[in-house]
Nucleic acid binder design. Structure first.
Length: 868
RNA sequence: GCGCCGGUAGCCCAACGGUAGGAGGCGACUGCCUUAGAAGCAGUUCAGUGCGGGUUCGAAUCCUGCUCGGCGCACCA
């Protein structure tokens, strides 16, 4: 073969430039054409892309290119989730300004993404830290305020006293601030909330409509929303002397059927009644502090220990005048759920049982398996919880005795409602979304605090409220708060002196609507309704499953909030969701236990040694690529060495996209060899095939026909695989076609039929691999004599005449075991098939004289002879 | 504890009620090519589908019990 090797270093930048010059991927609103909006979760600009990005963006890119080829008007944009803490950390640690740090990173990562050859519309690029983006976020927040979707309330936060900032739960490690190491305190702060809980039911119900979302994600969201049906009801409280208190105690329960098994009540340490009593009961304040201290993320050991503090109050049992339930403050009752108060039924709740055993409270079983003698049924140290399908019955429960659980629930609910002491209540676990962050590098919350007027939104004409650039990070706390003048302003209502809000938004807000902004990234309004009407919803959203709950739930909420305030007109922003797996790699360690980069490891026979020091290297588990374990492979190094197409091909090969893929050097080399093989095949096709544009000769038969069939079968299969996001299978089909081409080329058959088939199959081959290896495909297209861009070539259509056949091979089984196969005309009547099958020698032999009981015939597939 | 996903050749995987000479790739081995290597070419190797029951004419595929691995949720009353 006379060809030179394919050199991606030369071709890839050239074709990237050609696409840019042709403005090939700039999306234009065109109501006449069907649109396809493909989006990958936009990256945080950390400064360098990692393999996870390569995988994620390659998948989206294949879809964008494929959908474009089949005729869709494709929108495939890219942007930057550019606010957030790492920029501030860099400022603190290295003295760089968050803004320049961020924009430098964006520039670097943009170059890296471009080197992957992604079919992105860069003219729509947005960065969330840009005032031209966040001004709209501020505007919408003001609209949300007016629509009643915003609330300011005091809430408990994790406060780091050293850094003087609020920490998210995941930033609290063993009760200490993740950076300062200081003991984290629970503090009450006035915070801004978005009332996502108004949409609990709606967000839950609408999950059913998201049929193109992974079941797993829908389930996780449903659990997160956490709907439960129960009752809210009140107890009359009395003190030790029997004196009745004015206010009643309201509790929430889903097990009102077990009311006769109640033996105590428990309140959250933060319950208003507990706070009220704090001053009057010795030790209670200390108990509350204790609970607050281990509140955050103490693990299972602490969790197991149920503790309570008696409040010297008693709740009257609503149906048993003689029963008075002691009331406790307890560490296992959460203020944020239900009423922050419960009644304990130890026999049928493990937590209550643990508590009851610790404080020697009665344990009265009230539900037992059907047929059990109530007098004999007892509960030990394991609460009796009925499992699905159990036959159970109420015992020791007065007028409920003998009922099943659902009936008992009904009866109690009716009884309590009639007595006016309670009502049925649906509860949700989902809380309102706290969006205040005491940080600099985020979108300023556009409100003003005025002594006379209170909290006032900034006037829209005064937007955006921009971040000041002259800030310092030399002392703890929020730089906006320390800024000498930024927060000083005047009240939009009274004109008097006022202060700006110094909190900024949670960055999840930025990412809750960026997909809508991409429809009209330069519009003067947040979203141009006409553009959004055409482009939204996102047809295919791709990202990591780690965003299954927060980002995706917030975005679903935002779409509704934006629709309510007239900024959008749809509820579900993502029609289809795909969650791709991680990129994993083997880990390496020195004998001393230091992690070693894969790039520094060389193989020597069966052993591994350090490339630089020669030390012995031990191999460890295959784990998610992470900086801390150093099992990372730098995409830039791979692209430098093999080119983007090889990297793209590798991350799509073999492993199904939803599963974790193991990065291996041998696998990459295999992908690299394949690029070279494609190159040779195409050169050979150009030499041995017909010239471009040749029409189908009259007679194509034999091997030429087989090659045509292979090509059309490949077209059909790859098309289906790409529609279904089965990239690994599509790639296998391309390999198959490569094999078919290779063997056909070896025949050196100069017939017109074969020459035509080579041309046809060769062009199909290049077109089919183009979404995966776009640069190589362009170069091959040139070799095949074309002047046009591959990206403009329509997707080929399989000829049904070539993908089907008049004859089929039918497998022949005797008693379920394969004994022979037979070629028969397609669609042959069952009786004829039976006849043909029974005549086979192999069948007769297998039957061995036994009578035939019946013959099962699956048309055109299989025949099974069943003997007596 | 609850839930979800997955166990198919040495490895990654396909088939998802109908022929496991496995679609494909990686690896290994043999031969050809080469001064040699790399690359390339031709070919070979290897499992009966984690284990036990069941349904069926027929099960990797459906049901069921177990087992191993991964992930998510977890004091939500």
């Amino acid at each position: 073969m006379s060809t030179e090797r394919y050199n991606p270093r030369d071709t890839e930048p050239r074709w990237q430039q050609a696409w840019t010059d042709a403005r090939a991927f700039e999306a234009r609103h065109d109501p006449a054409r069907p649109k396809y909006y493909v989006l990958e979760m936009f990256p945080y600009p950390s400064g360098r892309i990692h393999m996870g990005h390569v995988r994620n963006y390659t998948m989206g890119d294949v879809l964008a290119r494929f959908r474009r080829a089949v005729g869709y008007n494709v929108l495939h944009p890219m942007g930057w989730d550019a606010f957030g803490m790492p920029a501030e950390n860099a400022a603190i640690e290295r003295g760089v300004h968050p803004k320049s740090w961020t924009y430098d990173n964006i520039a670097a990562m943009r170059d890296q993404l471009k080197s992957l050859g992604l079919a992105l519309d860069w003219s729509r690029e947005i960065a969330t830290c840009d005032p031209s983006y966040y001004r709209h976020e501020q505007e919408m927040f003001i609209d949300f305020m007016k629509a009643g979707l915003v609330e300011r309330k005091v809430s408990m936060v994790n406060w780091d006293p050293v850094d003087q900032t609020v920490l998210a739960n995941e930033q609290v490690i063993d009760g200490r601030g993740w950076r300062s190491g200081a003991l984290v305190e629970k503090r009450e702060l006035a915070q801004w909330f978005l009332k996502i809980s108004d949409y609990s039911e709606e967000l839950l119900k609408a999950l059913d409509g998201l049929t193109n979302w992974p079941e797993k994600v829908r389930l996780m969201q449903a659990n997160w929303i956490g709907r439960s049906e129960g009752m809210r009801f009140s107890f009359v409280l009395e003190d030790e002397t029997g004196k009745v208190r004015d206010e009643k105690l309201t509790v929430y329960t889903t097990r009102h059927d077990t009311i006769f098994g109640a033996s105590f009540c428990a309140l959250s340490a933060d319950h208003p009644l507990v706070r009220e009593l704090e001053g009057s009961i010795v030790g209670l304040a200390e108990f509350r502090r204790e609970v607050a201290a281990l509140g955050t993320s103490e693990e299972s050991i602490e969790r197991a220990e149920k503790k309570g503090f008696p409040l010297k109050l008693y709740a009257r049992h609503p149906f048993r005048p003689d029963v008075k339930l002691p009331v406790y403050a307890a560490n296992f009752v959460l203020m944020g759920y239900g009423e922050g108060a419960i009644f304990g039924c130890p026999a049928h709740d493990q937590r209550d049982l643990d508590f009851a055993r610790k404080y020697q409270l009665p344990v009265i079983p009230v539900v037992a398996p059907k047929g059990t003698d109530p007098a004999q049924f007892t509960v030990g140290n394991e609460a009796f919880l009925e499992k699905e399908g159990d036959q159970t019955v109420l015992i020791n429960s007065d007028f409920l005795d003998g009922m099943g659980v659902p009936e008992a629930k009904q009866t109690i609910a009716k009884r309590m409602e009639a007595l006016g002491i309670g009502e049925r209540k649906v509860n949700y676990r989902l809380r309102d979304w706290g969006v205040s962050r005491q940080r600099y590098w985020g979108c300023p919350i556009p409100v003003i605090h005025c002594i006379t007027c209170g909290v006032v939104p900034v006037r829209k004409q005064d937007l955006p409220v921009t971040l000041p650039e002259d800030v310092t990070f030399d002392r703890p706390g929020n730089p906006l708060m320390h800024h000498p003048s930024w927060k000083d302003t005047t009240c939009p209502t009274c004109g008097g002196k006022a202060k700006r809000e110094t909190d900024t938004f949670d960055t999840f807000i930025d990412s809750s609507w960026y997909f809508a902004r991409f429809c009209s990234p330069k519009a003067a309004v947040p979203v141009d309704r006409e553009e959004a009407k055409y482009w939204m919803a996102v047809d295919q959203y791709i990202g990591g499953v780690e965003h299954a709950i927060l980002h995706l739930l917030y975005s679903r909420f935002y779409a509704r909030a934006m629709t309510l305030t007239g900024h959008l007109d749809l509820k579900e922003p993502f029609a289809s969701l795909f969650t791709q797996g991680m990129v994993v790699h083997e880990t390496y360690k020195t004998e001393a236990g230091d992690w070693v980069l894969p790039a520094d490891v060389v193989r020597e026979g069966d052993a591994f040694v350090h490339a630089k020091t020669g030390e012995k290297i031990l191999t460890g588990g295959i784990e998610k690529m992470s900086k801390s374990k150093k099992n990372v492979v730098d995409p830039e190094a791979i692209i430098d060495r093999y080119g983007a197409d090889t990297a793209r091909w590798f991350v799509l090969s073999d492993t199904p996209p939803e599963r974790d893929i193991e990065w291996t050097e041998t696998g990459v080399e295999g992908a690299w060899r394949f690029t070279q093989r494609v190159w040779r095949i195409v050169a050979d096709v150009q030499q041995k095939g017909a010239v471009k544009g040749t029409v189908v000769p009259n007679a194509v038969a034999g091997e030429a026909l087989e090659l045509r069939r292979a090509a059309h079968l490949a077209i059909q299969a790859v098309t289906e695989d790409l529609y279904g996001l089965r990239f690994n299978r599509g790639i296998a089909r391309v390999y198959e076609l490569a094999n078919a081409l290779t063997s056909a080329l070896q025949k050196n058959d100069p017939s017109d039929g074969m020459r035509f088939a080579l041309r046809e199959a060769g062009e199909a081959f290049v077109t089919l691999l183009a979404p995966m290896m776009p640069h190589l495909a362009e170069e091959c297209w040139r070799v095949l004599g074309h002047e046009t861009l591959m990206v403009d070539r329509p997707w080929p259509k399989a000829d049904p005449a070539l993908t089907t056949s008049d004859e089929v091979t039918i497998a022949v089984q005797v008693n379920g075991k394969r004994r022979d196969e037979i070629r028969l005309p397609k669609g042959l009547p069952q009786a004829k098939v039976e006849q043909a099958v029974l005549a086979l020698d192999n069948v007769k032999r297998a039957l061995d004289g036994k009578p035939v009981r019946k013959v099962v015939v699956v048309p055109d597939r299989i025949a099974n002879v069943v003997s007596g």
